[in-house]
Amino acid sequence: MTLAELVCPAGTPAALRTAVDAGADTVYCGFRNATNARNFPGLNFSTDELATAVAYAHAKGSKVLLALNTYPPAGQVDLWREAADTGARIGVDAFIVADMGVARYIATKYPEIRLHLSVQAAASSPEAIRYYCESFGVKRVVLPRILTIPEIRRIAQEIPCEIETFIFGNHGLMVEGRCSLTNYVTGLSTNMDGVCSPAADVEYRREGDGAVSSCLSGYVIDRFGPDEMAGYPTICKGRYQAPHRPEGYYAFEEPVSLNLARLLPELIDAGVHAFKIEGRQRSKSYVRNVVSAFRNAVDDIRAGREANIAGLLQLTEGGRETQGAFETKKWR
């Protein structure tokens, strides 16, 4: 059995301490700029904050991963190099990267520091993963959320590195690292700026009939009845009309979140080394609840006990959840 390392989100120094205290084996975080894929206002770390956070985590036996997982546009690569230099100086345990230029820089300059391949690199076949392992010495791949468990098992047998999979949180529909929907609508890029459906461009518009339109930069991403709670206008979770669907439908996916609580033992058996919880944009209390629940579940599974799945399922109570592609390829 693999270690089933629990990799938890840390959007702020407070969330990092919370995650560590709640039993995270590992936390991941980013700097307060475009070098990571959650470049949201009020989130992330300054250099000093990261240094303090790494010291805190290490003192408690947890590891810290630094996400440098966006794609530097030409002419701005230095920002990513400096972030890597700073991370190395502070002593992070690994870098999470997507861009080949960034991967190469770190592999050449800091060969002693582990490289993890971000989901943003979209490596979804053994050949693609091997390419990154052979080129840059990648030690772990974060798999896209598009594979079934039998497919993950086959990949594990064909690659020379560890596997990390998402188990909980937001469920993006597009291949990560290959989506410019936000840039098309707002002028800010997910790949280059680390931004997805940015809050500054969101507007909830009350219509004449009492309905509420949830808009992003003027585009109506979804519309809700007077008694419904208006959802956030994430482009790939919107309701649109098509020639065969004049009534409007969720063209890509319903607004559901991922919860693989039931599948943890199968994932471990398939060869998954680490479980990733999404949510660097989430509150401290959310992080505490989710991390401790999964901590208990993973400890139970490791000890051969039945895990308290009901507790994990309650985490998404009220919200709708999915096992996505992991359960069946019919999801595709």
Partner: peptide
């Protein structure tokens, strides 16, 4: 513009 790709077929889903 080729804005995004997915593992899921949205044409099939629409039908």
């Amino acid at each position: 513009a080729p804005l995004a790709v997915s593992a899921r077929c949205y044409h099939a889903r629409a039908h």
